[in-house]
């Protein structure tokens, strides 16, 4: 039974996702002891390769998604099932900071597909959970997905492709803003469709996905490459003034939503 992690990384005009993937892969190797396969395109691979992935899979990315007047290459995640060389795969966003072996527990789950449905924000406890729209479902998160090569998992990814191809239609039905494709929303719909329009508690990773959200910045506490202790700084706006607050986190995995902050961390 082979196990490994899969990262999708396509450079955009603004961010070097390949570089992010290298950084994340090193952490996956170190903290999870797993090999990492990258799915990328020719133009993202640097001239001098400093890190050897377990496999490098070249695909043609779909560049039709636009966010903040810039290309956001996040489509095509449904290909993970066919592209993964592993029997058991952890599919992670490249900006997910692995700092512990917690994710290995997802392989203990008896299901063949698992993702997060609940998030918490560092420095912002009690933020309401995101929903697709006022009349729709609680959002599932595509940031961390564990899947096994089974027929059911294959169907979920096929469903993900179907939702991607008909995204505006689903946006219309579920009253969320179409146009900008989000894997989280597509996953929310795909998993529910594949499960017969029902919730299946076994498909949910039983702990929270930790986000570093807006007004929050993370700083490494030392210059050690595989550092797992950080200071998290939060700008708390009160009566028109910023009050700086901080905490210290260690051995905790988190998703850095601010790409500029992630690039600072890997610099």
């Amino acid at each position: 039974m082979s196990r490994g992690a899969l990262l999708f990384a396509f450079n955009s005009p603004k961010y070097n996702y390949y570089e992010m993937a290298v950084y994340t892969a090193k952490r996956i190797n170190h903290f999870l002891g797993l090999p990492v396969t990258i799915v990328t395109d020719e133009s993202s691979i640097p001239n001098t390769v400093t890190y050897e992935f377990d496999n490098t899979i070249i695909v043609s990315p779909d560049k039709t998604n636009i966010r903040d007047h810039s290309i956001w290459i996040n489509k095509g995640r449904y290909q993970a099932y066919d592209l993964s060389p592993y029997d058991e795969t952890l599919l992670l966003d490249t900006d997910y900071m692995v700092n512990s072996d917690t994710l290995l527990k997802t392989f203990d789950l008896s299901t063949d597909f698992a993702c997060h449905d609940t998030t918490s924000f560092l420095m912002h406890p009690g933020v309401p959970q995101e929903i697709l729209s006022a009349y729709s479902y609680k959002t599932l998160w595509a940031t961390v997905i564990m899947f096994r090569k089974t027929l059911r998992a294959k169907q979920i990814f096929e469903c993900l492709e179907m939702v991607q191809n008909n995204y505006d239609h689903y946006a219309n039905i579920h009253s969320f803003i179409g146009g900008l494709f989000r894997n989280d929303y597509a996953l929310t719909l795909a998993l529910r469709i594949a499960n017969g329009h029902a919730d299946r508690i076994e498909d949910i990773i039983p702990w929270n996905l930790v986000h570093v959200g807006k007004n929050t910045s993370v700083y490494k506490n030392t210059a050690v490459e595989l550092e797992s202790e950080y200071t998290v700084m939060f700008d708390n706006w009160q009566r028109g003034k910023i009050r700086k607050e901080y905490t210290i986190v260690k051995d905790t995995d988190f998703h850095v939503m601010n790409k500029d902050n992630f690039m600072e961390l890997i610099a």
Binding site: T102, K105, S120, L122, M123, H124, P125, G126, P206, W207, N208, V210, M233, F234, R243, K244, E245, Y246, T247, I248, V249, D251, T252
Partner: peptide, 20 residues
């Protein structure tokens, strides 16, 4: 000049160790 936020820390530790 930042202040340590005890409530966030408490919530974060609860999250962290609950998963373990």
């Amino acid at each position: 000049r930042a202040r340590f936020n005890h409530n966030s820390t408490k919530a974060h530790l609860k999250d962290k160790y609950s998963s373990k």
